[in-house]
Computed example of a mutant assay.
Amino acid sequence: MMETIARSDAPTLRRSDAPRGGSMADHATQPHPDDQPVPVVDCALYKHGKRRAGTLPLTEAMDTARTSPDSFVWIGLREPTTDQLEVVADAFGLHPLAVEDAVHAHQRPKLERYDDSLFLVLKTVVYVEHDHLTPTSEVVSTGEIMIFAGRDFAVVVRHGDSPDLRVVRRQLETQPELLAHGPAAAVHAIADTVVDQYLDVVRAIETDVEQVEAGVFSPERTDDSGRIYQLKREVLELRRAVVPLAMPLRELAEARAPGVDPEIGAYLRDVSDHLAQASERITGFAELLDGVLSANLAQLTVRQNTDLRRISAWAAIIAVPTMIVGVYGMNFDHMPELRWTFGYPLVLAVIVIACTLMYRAFRRNDWL
């Protein structure tokens, strides 16, 4: 069920609340035909890094952030529609292209700059618990977090599986010295949480990779191709979420984006380092799974060759008595052995000895 309101007192913004050429207070009381609620998870006003006490209406929080120095508003939304997000977009002048991306989701990790604001897309990843990896197991589930950050606002839009940002907000509120840096501090806190989640998922997938590897090299005759290929697909999905984020984080860490000061850049460099660790391990998983898949296919080929050799060895052993019995089944009148007293047991002895010698030879050469 969609998380529309996180708390019973969470604010709800309507299209008629958005400022359109005047103050928010003026427009808050004017009706509008498209009046509809916006799914606000949380809304908070921060001044000098400290949250304003009590619960502010969203319109008042936005208006205060614009008129009060060293203040910014942090708005959290959960899967809003186009009309719902446009309420906030009109208030802060968000770019229409970024708004469209935030509504429809399914974006690659990226950082875009629109005048004096930023639009950052983060892919979130959640590990899907499973008792045993199968050729159809879902290993990772992805979602998205879009962040609009300007001088006096941070608008966060969530889609799909993602971490609980209310926890992130509460943790950051215990560090007012960081929040005093404005919306960039919120960007860092969210990016840090997402990247830490990457590392958690990487550690969980490492166990799956080890299990598949052990299965391939176990003495039991199993075909793990389906499991390996499925795990490769899940690792590829994880890689698509993690690796493209490197460039956006590097730009933020180097303070090349507006609103990001060098001190927050230092924290973002640490996040970038953690992301590099996750990327390296994911790349290692991909290479290891390639090797495991090749080893599995090679083992199947070896097993097929072994089976073929065994069939050929038994066919050769059977050919000896078949040949001897076939010769004596011709019933010629002038066969030197035909009237020998011990001819019959001698033939049987020759068959047994020949087959035994061939069997031992094949065993010694690992054909049987």
Rank of each mutant, 00 (worst) to 15 (best):
T222D: 10
D223W: 14
D223G: 03
D224N: 04
D224Q: 05
S225A: 05
S225I: 07
G226R: 07
G226N: 06
R227E: 09
R227H: 05
R227V: 11
I228F: 12
Y229I: 08
Q230W: 15
Q230M: 15
L231G: 00
K232N: 08
K232P: 00
K232F: 10
K232A: 13
K232L: 13
R233A: 15
V235F: 15
V235K: 12
E237Q: 12
L238G: 03
L238Q: 05
L238P: 00
R240C: 13
A241D: 11
A241W: 11
A241R: 05
A241I: 07
V242T: 02
V242P: 02
V242C: 08
V243F: 09
P244S: 09
P244L: 14
L245M: 12
A246I: 10
A246P: 06
M247Y: 14
M247T: 04
P248Q: 06
L249D: 00
L249H: 00
L249S: 01
L249C: 01
E251P: 01
L252T: 02
L252H: 05
A253F: 03
A253W: 04
E254Q: 11
E254R: 09
E254F: 13
A255E: 15
R256D: 06
R256P: 00
A257Q: 00
A257S: 03
A257N: 00
P258M: 14
P258E: 14
G259T: 02
G259W: 08
D261C: 07
P262A: 13
P262W: 12
P262Y: 15
E263S: 14
E263W: 14
E263I: 12
I264D: 00
G265V: 05
Y267W: 07
D270G: 00
D270L: 09
D270F: 10
D270K: 07
D270I: 03
S272I: 02
D273V: 07
H274V: 02
H274K: 01
L275A: 02
A276W: 10
A276F: 08
Q277H: 09
Q277S: 11
A278P: 01
A278D: 00
S279P: 02
S279N: 09
S279Y: 06
R281V: 06
R281G: 07
I282L: 10
I282Q: 08
I282R: 05
I282C: 12
G284Q: 06
F285S: 04
A286M: 13
A286K: 13
L288A: 14
L288I: 08
L288C: 06
L289M: 08
L289A: 07
D290G: 14
D290M: 15
G291I: 13
V292N: 02
S294D: 15
S294C: 13
L297W: 15
A298W: 14
A298I: 07
Q299C: 10
T301V: 12
V302Y: 12
R303T: 01
R303W: 06
Q304F: 13
N305W: 11
D307G: 03
L308F: 10
L308Y: 03
L308T: 01
L308K: 01
L308W: 06
R309A: 11
R310H: 05
A313H: 02
A313T: 01
A313P: 00
A315L: 06
